[in-house]
Design a protein around this nucleic acid. Structure first.
Ligand SMILES: [Mn+2]
Ligand SMILES: [Mn+2]
Ligand SMILES: [Zn+2]
Ligand SMILES: [Zn+2]
Lengths: 143, 143
DNA sequence: TTATAGTATGACAATCAATTTCAATTGAGT
DNA sequence: ACTCAATTGAAATTGATTGTCATACTATAA
């Protein structure tokens, strides 16, 4: 799985005439080894631990490339931080976000997805993406 | 309806020992007279048209008070702009957002709301708020 | 292998929305 | 009118992100 994402990214890069670099490989390894829903800042810290010479701008630029290549998805939970999560091909999920501890639980619901489609159809709206997030208190934080 | 929101806001303010000012009244009038889903910037422009001496910070501060008082809700559509929309007491709706023309269509779906609740219950998660947005191309933009 | 052309990098400046600071002003109860 | 906390606008500041640019590097051709 990690092998295949590496491959996917490298194919995307060479297909666009973009280069493979030491820095990008470090960022990629840190991203793939990381928990999901990491903020750019958090990832930058992990990257620095491996190679302190890598700059902030490079991490930002590389994460955008991950999203373009399809191995990552950009997410926003409403704190001013952009986050990235791993994307499994053909999969989709939504999120439960704890406003107390910040933990994130993923879920899938086929019925909701279908209803969304129906609603869009009623309005003649063509859905490209959607975002469903439930914010509240997770089981642990409720004791 | 507009009378009652004005009232609601003024009651909230006096209840907190906060003052009624000329500036706040102008911002409130502009907000109530406006289309929904206005960005702070857009509202600021309307405010300036009525009273060019009112500052940016005052508009920001006042909109936060609207949200606190319950007459407005803060929304984020992923462009870097915070928006505010009118809140009707006891009502809730979600959004279809056109990524081409920026238009916003509101909808309500009781079944989806119920399913969200069920999912949260399964995880022992206590929902406080949620966000459901469908992004894509609206009927008009599809010709 | 070496030359070459275009890409990538990191330090730093710049941007953008939003917030904070602060001295001067104002609102509301007395 | 008096008092005092709340409010204001201008400007400075923050925090995340992006742009600039001179230097360094990668990949391919020769
Ligand atoms: Mn996720
Ligand atoms: Mn709305
Ligand atoms: Zn929690
Ligand atoms: Zn449209």
């Amino acid at each position: 799985m990690k092998r295949s994402k590496k491959k996917q990214f490298h194919e995307f890069m060479s297909g666009k005439g973009l280069k493979s670099t030491r820095q990008r490989d470090v960022v990629l390894d840190c991203f793939l080894a990381s928990d999901r829903h990491m903020s750019t800042e958090e990832l930058y810290m992990k990257v620095r631990a491996k190679n302190p010479t890598i700059g902030y701008a490079t991490v930002y630029r590389t994460l955008k490339l991950f999203a373009e290549s399809g191995i990552a998805r950009e997410i926003h939970f409403g704190d001013g931080q952009t986050r990235y999560e791993h994307v499994a091909e053909g999969e989709h999920h939504d999120h439960l976000v704890c406003t107390r501890c910040g933990s994130v639980q993923e879920f899938e619901n086929e019925t909701i997805e279908r209803l969304q489609q129906e609603i869009a159809d009623q309005f003649g709206f063509q859905v490209e993406t959607h975002k469903l997030e439930l914010y509240g208190i997770c089981a642990k934080c409720r004791q």
